[in-house]
Design a protein around this nucleic acid. Structure first.
Length: 131
DNA sequence: AACTTGACAGCAG
DNA sequence: GCTGCTGCCAAGT
């Protein structure tokens, strides 16, 4: 059973549209936390119970999984994936490529334009998706 | 209960 | 661009 914190993180990750990415820090902000929280977000994703693997992927269902590969670093760097085992990052890159997001020299190309930001708690407006 | 570690961020040099 | 430091955290030892 994921902790409330983890569950909150997953809930946000599941809202990331296909073909877009967000950052650990953006998620932390959306949770109304600051400081070291971005690290905690990474820790939560590391425990992701439902990654976008062939086994867990649902056909047709939009975000039935927790697409943690769509979470990268604030500076556009790819970030981590899986326990950090060799090949984990490669999988993340492959999953992103499948959504037309290219990674070059450890950086997401056109990062600014594919970046998606969840709504900040103090902001009631929900038109976050078009940004 | 203290201390360490981690899929991080922002700001200063 | 980069490197180094500190930061309203959460889990694991």
């Amino acid at each position: 059973m994921p902790s409330p914190f983890d569950a909150a993180v997953y809930a946000i990750v599941r809202r990331i549209p296909r073909g877009r990415v967000t950052t650990y820090g953006d998620i932390a902000k959306a949770l109304g936390r600051r400081g070291h929280t971005a690290r905690a977000v990474g820790s939560a994703l590391r425990r992701n119970p439902d990654p976008d693997s062939p086994k867990t992927r649902r056909r047709g269902g939009p975000s039935a999984v927790t697409p943690c590969h769509r979470v990268v670093r604030a500076n556009g760097a790819i970030g981590g994936y899986g326990g950090g085992f060799e090949g984990g990052i490669a999988r993340k890159i492959a999953l992103l490529a499948r959504e037309d997001i290219r990674v070059r020299a450890d950086r997401v190309e056109r990062f600014k334009s594919v970046r998606w930001q969840p709504a900040h708690p103090s902001t009631r407006r929900q038109r976050e998706d078009s940004l």
